[in-house]
Design a protein around this nucleic acid. Sequence first.
DNA 1: ACCAATAACATTGTATACAATAACACATTT
DNA 2: AAATGTGTTATTGTATACAATGTTATTGGT
Lengths: 250, 250
Amino acid sequence: MPLKAPADFSELNEIMKTPRQTDSDASHEDRAKAIRDTLRDAIVDRRLSPGAKLSEAEVGSLYSVSRTIARSALQMLAFEGLVTSERNKGAFVSNPSPEEARQIFTSRRLIETGILQSAAENMSAEDFAAFREQLKKEALLKEDHGAKARREEIKVSGDFHLMLAEVAGNAILKKFMEELIGRSSLVIALYGKTGTSSCGSDDHFGILEALEAGNLDQATKMMLHHINHIEADLDLRPQSSLSLKDALQL
Amino acid sequence: MPLKAPADFSELNEIMKTPRQTDSDASHEDRAKAIRDTLRDAIVDRRLSPGAKLSEAEVGSLYSVSRTIARSALQMLAFEGLVTSERNKGAFVSNPSPEEARQIFTSRRLIETGILQSAAENMSAEDFAAFREQLKKEALLKEDHGAKARREEIKVSGDFHLMLAEVAGNAILKKFMEELIGRSSLVIALYGKTGTSSCGSDDHFGILEALEAGNLDQATKMMLHHINHIEADLDLRPQSSLSLKDALQL
DNA sequence: ACCAATAACATTGTATACAATAACACATTT
DNA sequence: AAATGTGTTATTGTATACAATGTTATTGGT
C-alpha cells in the first residue's frame, strides 16, 4: 500500500491519511514550518522513502497552500539534509550514501559526548523523572510489534537523545543534534539490518543510571557504545539494490 | 541606479560599494545563494552592524532581483543564525546575547577538538603546505593596521579553522563549523575588547607545528587554549550600550 | 498640551502569472 | 531499426499583485 505507484498516484498522497496536528491555532504562526514538520515526520518514519519526489505543486495542493509555502518548507528540509533539491529538477527525499551515514555517526559520537558532559552538570530531579517517563514510553513501543509501533520507536528513541541535548542547555548543540537525529533516522530506515530496535532502550536506561549515579565516565562510555551499536546495526556495504531503486525513483 | 531609497539612507546601501564577485557565470546558478554570500560577508565584516534591518524590498532592489529571491537569501541566513527574522516585522542582523556567545565557543571547543583529531589522521604534505601559505596571509594582514585589513583578518583567521574542517573530511562537521565560524565572527565584531587581532596567527602556527610533529595532544591543548583566548578577549558582561543601540536599530 | 482613536502608510505574507528549463514522445532521416 | 531532431508537456525559477499586519502620523477630544 505505501508502495509508490507508477504514473500519477504519488507516494506523497499517503501522508494525507495521517492525522494532521493542531491545524487551527499553531499553524497560522508559520505554515511553512508546520508543513516542514509533517514532511520531516513522514521522511523519518519512512512513509516517504528516499528518492521520492516532492513536487512543489503536489505538496502545496496537499496542504492547500501555494507553491510559495511548499517551496519554503522544502528549502528548510534541504538545509537539514533530509531533502536534496536539484535545480530545475525538483526536491527529493535524500538518499544518504554509506559514507555520509558514517559521518553522521562520527559526528554524533563527538557531539553527544559533549552534550552528556553538560547534561550531567545540569540534571535536576525533575529531569531524571522525565527521562524515566520517556524510557517507559520506549519500553511500551518495544513490546508492540506492529509496523506502526516500529516507526514510532525510531522517533521516540531519538527523543531520548534530544532530551539530553535540551538538558545540556546549549541551544546550538541542540540544533546540531536535531539535524543529526533526523538524518540518523533516515539512515537507519535506509540501511537498518535487523527488524529489532536499533536503538535499544536498555542502552538508554544504562546511560541514565550512570548519570544518576554521578558517573560521567561510565555514562560516556555507554553512550559511545550505544552509538556504535546503532551504527553496527546498519548494512553500509556498497548498495546494489539501491541504485536500481534510485533508477526508478521518479 | 538600483538605489530606491527615498527618505532614510540605510546602512544596507553601503555594501553596494564593495566590489561584487563574479556576477556573470556563477550567479545564474543560484542567485539567492550569491546574495546570501555577499550579505554574509557584509555581516561578518561588520559592514552591517547587529540590529540592522534587512528589508526584503531593499535587498531585492540592491541586487536587482525580486523580493522572492531576497527573501530566500534572508531565510538562508536565518538558518545560519546570522539573521533573525520576526514575523511581520522583517529580518535583522542578529544581535547574539552573551549567553549565546558562550554557547558558540563551548560548541567550538567540542567540535574543533574532534575535527583536529580527524584532520591529524588525514593531513598530507600538500595540506601542510597550504596551511603554511594561509598563515603567511594572516601574518601580512596583521602587519597592515588599516580598518579594512582588520576586517579581512577576522575572516581569514576563520579560514584556518575551516581548512582544518575541510581536511578532516567530515562534511557534516564542516557544515557545523561554517555556521560556528560565521557566528563567531559576528560575536567577535560585537563584543571584541581589544583592537588587536582576537585570533592570533601565532596560535595557529603553534597548532600547525604540533600537528606536523604528530603531537595530537599538544595540538588539541593549543586549540583549546586558542579558543579560550578568543573568548577571553570578549567583553560579555551584561551590555548597556547595546540595548540603547537596539532601541534605535530601526 | 496631552492622550486616544483612527486613518494613512510601509512592510511582510501569500497566491498567482509568466518565463525558463528539462523530460518525454513522436516523427523524420539515414 | 537506430539515431537524431523537434515539438509538446510538465515542473521549476522568478516576478508581481494583492492581502494581512505593523507602524506612524494625524485628528479629535479633554
